[in-house]
Design a protein around this nucleic acid. Sequence first.
DNA 1: CTAGACATATTCCTATTAGAAATAGTCTCC
DNA 2: GGAGACTATTTCTAATAGGAATATGTCTAG
Lengths: 214, 214
Amino acid sequence: MTEKKARGAQAGDGAERPALPATSWAVLGLLSFGEELSGYDLKKWSDWSLRFFYWSPSFSQIYGELKRLEKVGYVTSRMVAQETGNRDKRVYVITDEGLAAVRHWAREAPVEPPVLKHGVMLRLWLGHLLEADRMREVLGRHREYAETMRHRAEVDAAGARAEAAWAYPSLVLKWSERYYASERDLADAMLADLDELAAAEDAGAAGDAERKRP
Amino acid sequence: MTEKKARGAQAGDGAERPALPATSWAVLGLLSFGEELSGYDLKKWSDWSLRFFYWSPSFSQIYGELKRLEKVGYVTSRMVAQETGNRDKRVYVITDEGLAAVRHWAREAPVEPPVLKHGVMLRLWLGHLLEADRMREVLGRHREYAETMRHRAEVDAAGARAEAAWAYPSLVLKWSERYYASERDLADAMLADLDELAAAEDAGAAGDAERKRP
DNA sequence: CTAGACATATTCCTATTAGAAATAGTCTCC
DNA sequence: GGAGACTATTTCTAATAGGAATATGTCTAG
């Protein structure tokens, strides 16, 4: 009894809304704070705010989304000529419909599992293809990355804490800080596991080695 | 001085190797354990083994990859007629070239940051659009998911521990178990933060409320 | 004063990735 | 003997990633 295509699915609150992909909601979400922003602004904004927990959309995606969102009436745009040098730009604002739509999405969308693509773990999973030292090196680099991200989240969280308007972004930054701290600790734990594994292998191979090297 | 296109980049060990996307390496990695597998097998395999830390490729991707890998000579295939019912299938094995290529990838590829797309955090970041109760509900569901995954990883890790051949996959399962435990704890910590935030808001709004309600 | 680096602003192009659906054969259970 | 489930693969479409191209303007070093 599954609908053939749930495009333009209605919502339970009566309003007919087009089905949109995740990125659309991210862009609309950025605009839901009420500011008038250009595509370029949005890119920078998302790079700075979403990077800790959500992959940043590319320019092409953002500009594409904005066109789509305008077509369905969730945002409107106007051109602005810039006083201080710089090229003219098109700025976008969210409409009441758009605000209702993101709000509905934030409230009613099903809770979906996070997407994780952990290249480092994929490589370690293929441990039979690497030397132990190289594994440690890869893990060490990853640990560094996690600590860098943790530190950035910490700094940003400190900056956001003051403003009452950033209460929720602030909360998520705190989460991010802990997330990357955990990622770092997980790397450390795995380094310890690797040492243990190596020790066990050495113990097992000791007899072999003696037989090979006189 | 960046190369225009590094397709077919050479490696430092002399061998010319075509540049492949991540999924190719995942598929080739699955085959690097030496078994002869069909596309269908690979899909199930990856669903069971990579799901904890690496998004599983779809059927279409796997079959596509296999064709590409065969074209570049990293795998070879043959048809097998199945005795016990079932349709004939095409099974793939890794070649020496292919093994050298994954090994090279596992050893030399740059360490890249994991990709995380955390829809739940995106929604909480937009906390100004949700009621506090709904936020708690979403977070609670996510906590459940994390605990389920942790438990699955625990079970799989217990199963893999025995076999010496699974030493590295086993290590990564252990990591996964800890990762999901941490994800669960992070959800709990955030629930506590939400309570704290609500308490602070109530305290701040107490004066207002008195003025409003006689 | 000018070449080059840098920042804003947007578009174009292409490959990768995701995922649903179509197709097809065999098996089992009722 | 038909419904549903499992194996097995292909096809199609949309979403996503990301580099390159194209403008335009500022600022700085030589």
